[in-house]
Protein backbone atom coordinates (compact mmCIF):
# COMPACT_ATOMS: atom_id res chain seq x y z
CA UNK A 1 0.00 0.00 0.00
CA UNK A 2 1.45 3.36 -0.96
CA UNK A 3 1.65 6.20 1.53
CA UNK A 4 -0.20 9.40 0.73
CA UNK A 5 2.03 12.39 0.27
CA UNK A 6 1.45 15.56 2.28
CA UNK A 7 0.67 17.48 -0.88
CA UNK A 8 -2.13 15.08 -1.67
CA UNK A 9 -3.58 15.53 1.79
CA UNK A 10 -3.60 19.30 1.54
CA UNK A 11 -5.85 19.10 -1.50
CA UNK A 12 -9.38 17.85 -1.02
CA UNK A 13 -8.89 14.13 -0.48
CA UNK A 14 -10.91 11.61 -2.40
CA UNK A 15 -13.01 8.99 -0.65
CA UNK A 16 -10.58 6.34 -1.93
CA UNK A 17 -7.61 8.10 -0.33
CA UNK A 18 -9.44 8.40 2.97
CA UNK A 19 -10.54 4.77 2.91
CA UNK A 20 -7.02 3.63 2.06
CA UNK A 21 -5.67 5.33 5.16
CA UNK A 22 -8.51 3.92 7.25
CA UNK A 23 -7.75 0.35 6.18
CA UNK A 24 -4.43 0.28 8.04
CA UNK A 25 -4.15 0.38 11.85
CA UNK A 26 -1.04 2.54 11.49
CA UNK A 27 -2.68 5.24 9.40
CA UNK A 28 -6.20 4.91 10.75
CA UNK A 29 -6.14 7.99 12.97
CA UNK A 30 -4.68 10.10 10.19
CA UNK A 31 -7.35 8.82 7.84
CA UNK A 32 -10.09 9.58 10.33
CA UNK A 33 -8.81 13.10 10.91
CA UNK A 34 -8.74 13.55 7.14
CA UNK A 35 -12.32 12.32 6.92
CA UNK A 36 -13.38 14.78 9.61
CA UNK A 37 -11.58 17.74 8.09
CA UNK A 38 -13.00 16.87 4.69
CA UNK A 39 -16.65 16.66 5.74
CA UNK A 40 -16.97 18.47 9.08
CA UNK A 41 -18.17 21.81 7.73
CA UNK A 42 -20.66 20.35 5.29
CA UNK A 43 -22.06 18.09 7.97
CA UNK A 44 -22.05 20.85 10.55
CA UNK A 45 -24.21 23.16 8.41
CA UNK A 46 -26.54 20.35 7.54
CA UNK A 47 -26.96 19.57 11.24
CA UNK A 48 -27.09 23.22 12.28
CA UNK A 49 -29.96 23.91 9.89
CA UNK A 50 -31.80 20.97 11.35
CA UNK A 51 -31.27 21.83 15.04
CA UNK A 52 -30.57 25.59 14.59
CA UNK A 53 -28.66 26.24 17.84
CA UNK A 54 -24.86 25.97 17.79
CA UNK A 55 -24.43 24.01 21.04
CA UNK A 56 -26.95 21.42 19.85
CA UNK A 57 -25.26 21.22 16.45
CA UNK A 58 -21.90 20.70 18.18
CA UNK A 59 -23.26 17.82 20.28
CA UNK A 60 -24.91 16.19 17.27
CA UNK A 61 -21.82 16.58 15.08
CA UNK A 62 -19.53 15.03 17.71
CA UNK A 63 -21.98 12.16 18.21
CA UNK A 64 -22.09 11.70 14.45
CA UNK A 65 -18.30 11.38 14.17
CA UNK A 66 -18.13 9.01 17.13
CA UNK A 67 -20.73 6.79 15.45
CA UNK A 68 -18.78 7.02 12.20
CA UNK A 69 -15.57 6.03 14.01
CA UNK A 70 -17.24 3.00 15.56
CA UNK A 71 -19.02 1.96 12.39
CA UNK A 72 -16.53 2.78 9.63
CA UNK A 73 -15.72 -0.94 9.18
CA UNK A 74 -19.32 -1.42 8.08
CA UNK A 75 -19.06 1.15 5.31
CA UNK A 76 -19.07 -1.02 2.19
CA UNK A 77 -18.35 1.72 -0.32
CA UNK A 78 -21.58 1.05 -2.21
CA UNK A 79 -22.57 4.71 -1.86
CA UNK A 80 -20.49 7.88 -1.65
CA UNK A 81 -18.85 8.43 1.72
CA UNK A 82 -20.74 11.71 2.14
CA UNK A 83 -24.09 9.99 1.53
CA UNK A 84 -23.30 7.55 4.34
CA UNK A 85 -22.12 10.34 6.65
CA UNK A 86 -25.14 12.47 5.76
CA UNK A 87 -27.53 9.69 6.76
CA UNK A 88 -25.81 9.14 10.09
CA UNK A 89 -25.84 12.89 10.78
CA UNK A 90 -29.50 13.15 9.78
CA UNK A 91 -30.45 10.28 12.11
CA UNK A 92 -28.55 11.90 14.96
CA UNK A 93 -30.17 15.27 14.31
CA UNK A 94 -33.65 13.75 14.13
CA UNK A 95 -33.08 11.85 17.38
CA UNK A 96 -32.00 15.11 18.97
CA UNK A 97 -35.09 16.94 17.65
CA UNK A 98 -37.38 14.18 18.91
CA UNK A 99 -35.96 14.42 22.40
CA UNK A 100 -36.31 18.21 22.18
CA UNK A 101 -39.95 17.84 21.08
CA UNK A 102 -40.62 15.55 24.06
CA UNK A 103 -39.08 18.19 26.30
CA UNK A 104 -41.24 20.88 24.68
CA UNK A 105 -44.44 18.90 25.15
CA UNK A 106 -43.49 18.20 28.78
CA UNK A 107 -43.07 21.95 29.38
CA UNK A 108 -46.34 22.71 27.52
CA UNK A 109 -44.39 24.88 25.09
CA UNK A 110 -44.68 24.51 21.31
CA UNK A 111 -41.64 23.76 19.18
CA UNK A 112 -41.78 27.18 17.50
CA UNK A 113 -41.76 29.13 20.76
CA UNK A 114 -39.09 26.93 22.26
CA UNK A 115 -36.82 27.36 19.26
CA UNK A 116 -37.52 31.08 19.03
CA UNK A 117 -36.46 31.53 22.64
CA UNK A 118 -33.39 29.37 22.22
CA UNK A 119 -32.31 31.32 19.12
CA UNK A 120 -32.58 34.56 21.06
CA UNK A 121 -30.36 33.05 23.74
CA UNK A 122 -27.86 31.60 21.27
CA UNK A 123 -24.79 33.80 21.05
CA UNK A 124 -23.99 32.27 17.67
CA UNK A 125 -27.12 33.63 16.06
CA UNK A 126 -26.98 37.26 15.07
CA UNK A 127 -29.90 37.39 12.69
CA UNK A 128 -32.90 39.69 12.91
CA UNK A 129 -36.54 38.78 13.59
CA UNK A 130 -37.24 37.91 9.94
CA UNK A 131 -34.25 35.58 9.78
CA UNK A 132 -35.35 33.99 13.08
CA UNK A 133 -38.87 33.62 11.69
CA UNK A 134 -37.53 31.75 8.67
CA UNK A 135 -35.52 29.37 10.89
CA UNK A 136 -38.58 28.70 13.04
CA UNK A 137 -40.76 28.13 9.95
CA UNK A 138 -38.19 25.62 8.61
CA UNK A 139 -37.98 23.90 12.01
CA UNK A 140 -41.74 23.39 11.99
CA UNK A 141 -41.74 21.57 8.64
CA UNK A 142 -42.12 17.78 8.62
CA UNK A 143 -38.70 16.04 8.74
CA UNK A 144 -38.49 15.07 5.07
CA UNK A 145 -39.63 18.48 3.81
CA UNK A 146 -37.13 20.09 6.14
CA UNK A 147 -34.26 18.06 4.70
CA UNK A 148 -35.34 18.71 1.13
CA UNK A 149 -35.83 22.42 1.71
CA UNK A 150 -32.41 22.81 3.37
CA UNK A 151 -30.56 20.86 0.69
CA UNK A 152 -32.25 22.80 -2.09
CA UNK A 153 -32.47 26.27 -0.56
CA UNK A 154 -29.10 26.49 1.21
CA UNK A 155 -26.91 23.98 -0.64
CA UNK A 156 -28.65 24.40 -4.01
CA UNK A 157 -28.21 20.70 -4.49
CA UNK A 158 -29.55 19.35 -7.81
CA UNK A 159 -32.55 17.07 -7.38
CA UNK A 160 -30.70 14.17 -9.03
CA UNK A 161 -27.95 14.25 -6.38
CA UNK A 162 -30.51 14.74 -3.62
CA UNK A 163 -32.38 11.73 -4.95
CA UNK A 164 -29.35 9.52 -4.28
CA UNK A 165 -28.76 10.89 -0.80
CA UNK A 166 -32.38 10.75 0.34
CA UNK A 167 -33.24 7.67 -1.71
CA UNK A 168 -36.32 9.41 -3.05
CA UNK A 169 -37.50 10.03 -6.60
CA UNK A 170 -36.85 13.40 -8.19
CA UNK A 171 -40.60 13.97 -8.65
CA UNK A 172 -41.27 13.36 -4.96
CA UNK A 173 -38.42 15.71 -4.00
CA UNK A 174 -39.77 18.49 -6.21
CA UNK A 175 -43.20 18.04 -4.65
CA UNK A 176 -41.70 18.11 -1.14
CA UNK A 177 -39.80 21.32 -1.90
CA UNK A 178 -42.91 22.91 -3.36
CA UNK A 179 -45.01 22.03 -0.29
CA UNK A 180 -42.27 23.23 2.06
CA UNK A 181 -42.04 26.57 0.22
CA UNK A 182 -45.81 27.01 0.39
CA UNK A 183 -45.82 26.32 4.14
CA UNK A 184 -43.04 28.82 4.73
CA UNK A 185 -44.87 31.36 2.59
CA UNK A 186 -48.02 30.75 4.65
CA UNK A 187 -46.05 31.24 7.88
CA UNK A 188 -44.97 34.67 6.61
CA UNK A 189 -48.44 35.58 5.30
CA UNK A 190 -49.60 37.50 8.33
CA UNK A 191 -46.16 38.32 9.63
CA UNK A 192 -45.56 41.98 10.27
CA UNK A 193 -42.15 41.67 11.97
Amino acid sequence: MHELHLTAIQKPATDEQIMELLRSEKTFERGFRLLMSQYRERLYWHIRRMVQVHDDADDVLQNTFIKVYRGIAQFEGKSKLYTWLYRIATNEALTHLQSQARHASASLDDTGNLLSNRLKADEWFDGDAVQAKLLVAIAELPDKQKQVFNLRYYDEMPYEEMSQILNTSVGALKASFHHATKKIEAAFQNYEG
Binding site: R33, M36, S37, R40, E41, Y44, R48, R49, Q52, H54, D58, L61, Q62, F65, I66, Y69, W124, F125, D126, G127, D128, V130, Q131, A132, L134, L135, Y153, Y154, T181, I184, E185
Partner: peptide, 25 residues
Amino acid sequence: LQDLKAKGDGLQVPEGYFEEMEDAV
Protein backbone atom coordinates in the same frame (compact mmCIF):
# COMPACT_ATOMS: atom_id res chain seq x y z
CA LEU B 1 -37.19 33.81 0.08
CA GLN B 2 -34.79 34.93 -2.63
CA ASP B 3 -34.16 38.12 -0.67
CA LEU B 4 -33.69 36.25 2.59
CA LYS B 5 -31.25 33.87 0.95
CA ALA B 6 -29.11 36.76 -0.21
CA LYS B 7 -29.21 38.23 3.29
CA GLY B 8 -28.06 35.01 4.96
CA ASP B 9 -29.62 33.22 7.90
CA GLY B 10 -27.69 34.81 10.77
CA LEU B 11 -26.15 31.56 11.91
CA GLN B 12 -22.54 31.81 13.04
CA VAL B 13 -19.89 29.44 14.29
CA PRO B 14 -17.09 30.21 16.80
CA GLU B 15 -13.64 30.91 15.37
CA GLY B 16 -11.49 27.77 15.32
CA TYR B 17 -14.50 25.65 16.21
CA PHE B 18 -13.87 22.92 13.65
CA GLU B 19 -10.29 22.23 14.70
CA GLU B 20 -11.32 22.08 18.35
CA MET B 21 -14.26 19.86 17.49
CA GLU B 22 -11.89 17.24 16.02
CA ASP B 23 -9.84 17.22 19.22
CA ALA B 24 -13.02 16.99 21.29
CA VAL B 25 -14.11 13.96 19.28
